[in-house]
Simulated scan of single mutants.
Amino acid sequence: MSSKSSTPRRPGRRAMVAAGLVLAVGLGVSTQVSAQASVQAPAKASAAAQRTVSGTTGQAETRVADFYGAYIDAKGDYEAPDATLAKALRKHYLTTDFAERLALWEEQNGVDGVLRAQNVPAKWTVSDNGAAGNGREVVVTLTYGSGGTTQKIKLFVLVERYNRIADIATTTGR
Score class of each variant (00 low, 15 high):
residue 2 S to L: 06
residue 7 T to M: 06
residue 7 T to R: 11
residue 8 P to H: 05
residue 9 R to A: 14
residue 10 R to C: 13
residue 14 R to N: 12
residue 16 M to Y: 08
residue 20 G to F: 10
residue 26 G to C: 08
residue 30 S to N: 09
residue 30 S to D: 15
residue 32 Q to K: 01
residue 36 Q to K: 02
residue 38 S to L: 02
residue 40 Q to A: 04
residue 43 A to S: 10
residue 47 A to K: 10
residue 48 A to D: 14
residue 55 G to F: 02
residue 61 E to G: 03
residue 63 R to C: 14
residue 65 A to V: 15
residue 67 F to R: 14
residue 68 Y to K: 01
residue 68 Y to R: 00
residue 75 K to V: 13
residue 76 G to S: 09
residue 82 D to S: 07
residue 83 A to L: 07
residue 84 T to N: 12
residue 87 K to F: 05
residue 87 K to R: 14
residue 91 K to Q: 07
residue 92 H to V: 15
residue 97 D to A: 14
residue 98 F to M: 08
residue 98 F to C: 10
residue 99 A to F: 03
residue 99 A to D: 15
residue 100 E to M: 03
residue 111 V to H: 02
residue 114 V to K: 06
residue 116 R to S: 09
residue 118 Q to E: 11
residue 118 Q to G: 15
residue 118 Q to R: 11
residue 120 V to R: 01
residue 123 K to Y: 05
residue 123 K to F: 05
residue 123 K to C: 02
residue 128 D to S: 04
residue 132 A to T: 12
residue 133 G to D: 06
residue 141 T to P: 01
residue 141 T to R: 03
residue 143 T to S: 01
residue 146 S to V: 07
residue 146 S to H: 07
residue 149 T to R: 12
residue 156 F to P: 00
residue 160 E to Q: 06
residue 161 R to L: 01
residue 162 Y to H: 05
residue 162 Y to W: 03
residue 163 N to Q: 10
residue 164 R to M: 04
residue 165 I to H: 01
residue 168 I to N: 03
residue 169 A to R: 13
residue 170 T to A: 09
residue 174 R to W: 12
